[in-house]
């Protein structure tokens, strides 16, 4: 625990020293603003928008993972590019423990923000326990996202490209709601497909646990594979 705290403090310090990373800390404010004020105002002005509020809510919620996904993805890429990753490789910390340590705080914060957003959004009356489970799934997306970006990119430029691709992959399954059922299954290759499906069912009080269990399993497998590859390659 002490180690985790140490790593988190060091990381937050790094984030605050970097203007482009620091800016992303304001992303949640923007998202909360959209859901609490902008979207309700929009619906009032153009009632037709109400038909889409569910999708906007789902996408906005999942966008909360962008903050730390981007920040940590770029941080890891930057460390690889500057060779700082090599220094971490010889520090007296356990390699897997280090991944857990680094992502502990960002995961927790993402979970809390997601949970809060689902509770305070003005459109649906959602039970808090399912909201918490969804938030945990959302939190798990952060390390998958960040480690994925760092595995795919050699430098910051490539990192910025892969961040965009990653965000697209995360948002894309929303399309599944707008296409015929048989085509929508195609989107099941994206982990967030399962999250969206479950959230949709939860909003309408249907049974959602199966989809979330699938999503959870999917994310866990990805996270394990990515972490193993990361510990092998990142410090070289």
């Amino acid at each position: 625990m002490q180690q985790i705290l140490k790593i988190s403090i060091a990381d937050f310090w790094l984030i605050f020293r970097d203007a482009s990373l620091k800016t992303f800390l304001f992303l949640p404010l923007l998202i909360f603003f959209v859901i609490l004020w902008a979207l309700p105002a929009l619906i009032k002005a153009f009632p037709i928008v109400a038909d889409y509020k569910k999708y906007i809510l789902i996408v906005s919620t999942i966008q909360l993972t962008q903050m730390f996904g981007f920040i940590y993805g770029m941080m890891l890429v930057d460390e690889k590019e500057t060779g700082v990753a090599k220094v971490y490789g010889i520090l007296p910390v356990n390699k897997i423990g280090f991944i857990i340590g680094r992502f502990f705080m960002p995961i927790i914060i993402t979970i809390l923000l997601t949970f809060l957003l689902l509770l305070v959004q003005p459109f649906y009356n959602l039970a808090s326990f399912p909201c918490l489970i969804f938030s945990i799934l959302s939190g798990l997306l952060v390390p998958v996202y960040a480690i994925g970006v760092s595995l795919l990119s050699k430098n910051r430029i490539e990192g910025l490209v892969w961040v965009k691709v990653m965000n697209l992959i995360i948002v894309l399954p929303i399309v599944a709601f707008f296409v015929p059922k048989n085509i929508s299954y195609f989107f099941s290759v994206f982990p967030t497909y399962w999250l969206y499906l479950g959230l949709d069912q939860m909003i309408f009080n249907q049974y959602f646990m199966i989809n979330w269990a699938a999503g959870f399993l999917y994310l866990l497998i990805l996270l394990t594979l990515f972490s193993l590859q990361f510990t092998k390659k990142h410090y070289e």
Binding site: L14, R17, T82, V87
Partner: peptide, 18 residues
């Protein structure tokens, strides 16, 4: 291989903390 945006002292503080 250092954090270029940190000072020399901060670099050593960060890695030293481990």
């Amino acid at each position: 291989n250092h954090y270029l945006k940190l000072t020399g002292r901060e670099n050593l503080q960060l890695f030293g903390s481990f």
